[in-house]
Design a protein around this nucleic acid. Structure first.
Length: 839
RNA sequence: GCCGAGAUGGCGGAAUGGUAGACGCGGUAGACUCAAAAUCUACUAACCGUAAGGUUGUGUGGGUUCAAGUCCCAUUCUCGGCACCA
């Protein structure tokens, strides 16, 4: 459901009958005031310590949902807190504006016979979303806004592409790639999700196609990307990236054939003597060369079938091994034996060398294949202290520890897990000495396929000339602009392919007629360096201001959804390292500290999405309760990094809290008197709140911070009366309460600050620090346990010694009755906490 | 299968090895009101008890400790990531 921006903030009067204030008036008033006073515009040359606080920019979908608020409101709170702590905080926002949804909307319009350009739609949505963002009350510095579909931005995507190309970090390759038939484009490996291999955007199973595509050489940094040294990132993200990169140590070994040698990668070179056949991936280049004449038909049929099969179809076969003998043999380099060469689709061209030595006795997949096609199984590792393995009766491969057998001079060598065992190291050294093989490290990570066969993205700045080949567009000709006058095909095919004026150009080398690349870049390219551009978003000469970048980068604090753990965050790290190697920056890592918010689910426990119809629209909530209430409720709902289901019930509690706070801080008090002890109690509560809220904000624990503020309010409400409000303790409590609230509920806090007669904005006040002496109590309540069970609570003086405490504990009536006729064996006194008497 | 996180009242969730359930939602009773809403006050883990108090309780089974939601061992389930990766 959508609401027009004009009606967004209209109050619903009935909800505020009991309130002394109208949140909508307050929000409008202060938002206007902050804008006029340019409260959020950063001065990059300010002498205060700088703090770059980045939050993931969104795709302009037109409407914000509570997921956006869940991401931005706590980030804003943390940014405001940093500013009150004395930092010069830069908190920018922009839009990740290229991408399929806008283009698909244009295609759908074309099907209806209408003409809607993605740019028109995108800028309209940006405008609408900016208005909605304003409601949050976030301190975004909109003067540094970046919109990636703007030629002033994507020009620098193209420029960076050219620098990568010149330095061998971008290259073109013809190979089998993942293709989404619904999105009509290729995808990066990272964008193919799960066992079913679905497109991460539309959940359609991908298919394989052989295409000539552009890649960024992420694998060049595989090792460096494994190091997170000096980074304060969630363990979860580091593990996900580490697993994704997938480093394996082993050896490459050469097997001779009648034609060329076949190189295999193995993590178990110690099992080389047990290799009884070889398997190549169906796409392996040597398949055609080694194929025996009489096997040709069968092999070609298998290769064709493998190419056509989707992952779903493979699944349907139940992972049953399939394969074909290609009619030739290779020589096992250690046993000298001739072993048959097969092809099978369980060997993947994209990993290792696309060829394996099969050791059926010690690898489950090879075992299944050998059993199915009746190939020999030879034991070369015998487990210690168990009955010996028998190739004829074994039901599965043995991959455990053991002693090498049937392995010539290595017989008797121990082989254990982890690849650090004696056997593996010895075998590798020997292979190297004999020239048969060598130590090798392989990664699961693959280069980033960035070509997309779509219109709404950055054009790849390459021209194809019949004589000169692929020629980069000269930097002076950038940007290669997307033509506006395009006709969208109902098929979804990129209109660039048929746009003659765009397509036809001349070769920058020889001047002959030539064609442009019609592919555009993956939109993840846009987001891989945008935080550089925020520093000088309109610079026409350079991608970013280098001097400023040296001062302001890396980003101190980045926040974003956990769903970016591999895609965006890995690409961004790669870009930073590549840019460093090109001399563009001196940093190696983009984000020093990372915090991820969890995913907010709909009330039905499902991920919020338009198609499920469980999207919660914050406009409605803001109309009813005000932005401050919505912000703080989202922070109070639970631990931020955990996410969880949305429940609209609980917001009432936060609304009540804000109303009660208003009354406690600003309204007149009832008649009453106050004691010295009560003044002390109030001061203690105030300083305890400062301490707890500060610690919680340092750790991004917004829910407990708000709980702490509620506790302070409860104490204030309880103690408030006409006598109390005259005291300096009360006045301190008022000021501290409003100051601590400011990052969470910026509008209400500002209004209360002003009504308290305080000068300036509450948002430029410095954060209070707590007085330790205020936390000390005169008397302490201590639990008394007998044999670990709590029997009573005693109140003793804070100065009481051990003897005094024990005495008080033992004479307490309910404790004494458990001590009758008992011998006390042990007395434990934990100062300030409890006493445990063991009888 | 591999890697990781988690399991606490009716619900969301708190708890540096030291009184489990902070804070909030919901619920019950009362005050105010002609009445309702809002607000305020009290109670609210379960079971027994008029009460004082007692027993049991942090997925399950063991262990360490004066003391365990927290530490150790085993186990079940849930969620997230990866997956025919050689």
């Amino acid at each position: 459901m959508s609401t027009s921006p004009e009606t967004i903030s209209e109050p619903i009067a009935s909800s505020y009958q009991s309130s002394k204030y109208n949140p909508h008036e307050i929000e409008k008033k202060w938002q206007r005031h902050w804008q006029e006073t340019k409260l959020y515009e950063v001065d990059f040359d300010d002498s205060k310590p700088k703090f770059y606080f980045l939050t993931m920019y969104p795709y302009p979908s037109g409407d914000l949902h509570v997921g956006h608020w869940y991401a931005e409101a706590p980030a804003d709170t943390a940014a405001r807190y940093k500013r009150m702590r004395g930092y010069n905080v830069f908190f920018p926002m922009g839009f990740d504006a290229f991408g399929l949804p806008a283009e698909n909307a244009a295609v759908r319009a074309a099907k209806r016979g209408e003409d809607v350009h993605p740019a028109t739609l995108t800028y309209k949505q940006i405008e609408r979303m900016e208005k909605q963002f304003a409601q949050i009350g976030a301190m975004f510095d909109w003067s540094k806004k970046v919109v990636t579909c703007d030629p002033e931005y994507y020009k620098w995507n193209q420029w960076l592409f050219l620098q990568f190309y010149k330095n061998g970090l971008a290259y073109k390759k013809f190979s089998p790639v993942d293709w989404c038939p619904n999105c009509n484009t290729t995808l990066a490996r990272e964008q193919v999700i799960g066992e079913e291999r679905l497109c991460d955007r539309c959940q359609t199973p991908v298919i394989k196609k052989d295409l000539d595509q552009w890649y960024f050489k992420v694998t060049h940094y595989a090792d460096e990307l494994l190091s997170f040294e000096g980074l304060d990132w969630p363990e979860k993200v580091r593990l996900m990236q580490t697993n994704w990169i997938g480093r394996s140590e082993g050896a490459e070994v050469k097997f001779q054939t009648e034609a060329e040698d076949i190189t295999v990668f193995t993590t178990r070179p110690d099992t080389l003597w047990g290799a009884t056949f070889m398997v190549l991936a169906p796409e392996h280049p040597l398949v055609a060369k080694l194929c025996g004449a009489e096997k040709k038909a069968a092999v070609e049929a298998y290769v064709e079938a493998a190419k056509r099969k989707t992952e779903i179809e493979r699944q349907a076969e139940g992972k049953e091994k399939t394969g074909v003998f290609i009619g030739s043999y290779a020589k096992n380099p250690v046993s000298g034996e001739d072993i048959p060469i097969w092809i099978a689709d369980y060997v993947l061209m994209g990993y290792g060398t696309g060829a394996i030595m099969a050791v059926p006795a010690h690898d489950q997949r090879d075992f299944e294949f050998a059993r199915k096609f009746d190939l020999p199984i030879r034991i070369v590792i015998q487990p210690q202290g168990e009955s010996a393995l028998d190739p004829n009766s074994m039901k599965q491969a043995y991959a455990g520890d053991g002693v090498m057998v049937n392995s010539a001079q290595f017989n008797g060598t121990f082989v254990g897990k982890e690849g650090h065992s004696e056997g593996i190291t010895k075998v590798i050294s020997w292979l190297e000495a004999e020239g048969i093989g060598q130590k090798q490290v392989t990664y699961r990570l693959r280069d980033w396929l960035i070509s997309r066969q779509r219109y709404w993205g950055t054009p790849i700045p390459i021209i194809y000339c019949d004589d000169c080949g692929a020629v980069p567009v000269p930097e002076s000709d950038l940007p290669v602009e997307l033509p506006k006058d395009v006709a969208f095909m109902p098929t979804g095919e990129s209109p660039l392919k048929s746009h003659e004026a765009f397509l036809n150009t001349t070769c920058p080398h020889c001047g002959k007629a030539a064609k442009r690349d019609t592919d555009t870049m993956d939109t993840f390219v846009d987001s891989s360096w945008y935080w550089f551009r925020y520093l000088s978003p309109h610079d026409a000469e350079r991608p970013f201001d280098k001097t400023r970048a040296e001062k302001w980068l890396p980003v101190e604090q980045y926040t974003g959804g956990i769903e970016h753990a591999i895609l965006h965050l890995l690409y961004s790290r790669f870009f930073t390292k590549a840019m460093r190697d090109l001399g563009l920056t001196s940093i190696s890592e983009p984000f020093s500290k990372l915090r991820n918010q969890g995913i907010i689910l709909g009330e039905d426990d499902e991920k919020m999405s338009k198609s499920r119809g469980n999207v919660v629209n914050p406009d409605m909530l803001v109309s009813e309760y005000g932005a401050d209430a919505v912000r703080s409720y989202l922070m109070f709902i639970g631990p931020w990094d955990q996410g969880g289901p949305w429940n609209s019930k609980g917001i009432e509690g936060v609304v009540r809290f804000l109303n009660r706070t208003w009354n406690a801080v600003l309204e007149e008090a009832n008649e009453g008197s106050s004691s010295e002890a009560e003044h002390k109690e109030l001061r203690r509560a105030v300083h305890a709140a400062i301490k707890e809220v500060t610690e919680d904000l340092d750790y991004f624990q917004f829910n407990t911070a708000i709980a702490e503020l509620m506790t302070l309010l409860n104490v204030m409400s309880k103690l408030k009366n006409s006598a109390m409000v005259q005291s300096p303790e009360w006045q301190e409590a008022q000021k501290v309460m409003v100051t601590l609230l400011a990052p969470f509920v910026p509008h209400i806090a500002e209004e209360m600050w002003s009504r308290l007669g305080q000068a300036n904005s509450v948002h430029v006040q410095s954060w209070p620090s707590h007085d330790k002496t205020a936390l000390v109590r005169d008397t302490i309540k201590m639990a008394v346990q007998v044999n670990g069970k709590v029997r009573a609570e005693i109140e003793v003086s804070a100065q009481a010694g051990k003897e005094e405490i024990l005495n008080a504990a033992k004479t307490e009536a309910n404790v004494a009755k458990y001590l009758i006729d008992q011998q006390i064996k042990r007395e434990i006194v934990v100062p300030g906490k409890l006493v445990n008497l063991v009888v």
